[in-house]
Amino acid sequence: MARVVVDVMLKPEILDPQGQAVQRALPRLGFTGIADVRQGKRFELEVEGPVDDAALARIREAAETFLANTVIEDFTVRVEDK
């Protein structure tokens, strides 16, 4: 089975307080030099059958209607090489 990965991230203009909290915690743990952190979601979809253009179009539709809220989030869809 092929794996399709959907990454969902808050749009750049939307405040990400979780990412900020992570960023602020890093130097306390000795991880310096990280200027910014944005936190997102990754979905791994195991697809039955061929991942052709039609299958990818359906997955994009699923991402747009369900996996991401496009009011505040952007998403990317890619086929993962195994």
Binding site: I14, L15, P17, Q18, N69, V71, I72
Partner: peptide, 17 residues
């Protein structure tokens, strides 16, 4: 209601977490 697009916008994590 926001997720249903009956109302515009979205509700996100409180800024102070």
């Amino acid at each position: 209601l926001c997720e249903s697009h009956l109302l515009p916008g979205a509700l996100t994590r409180n800024d102070h977490l």
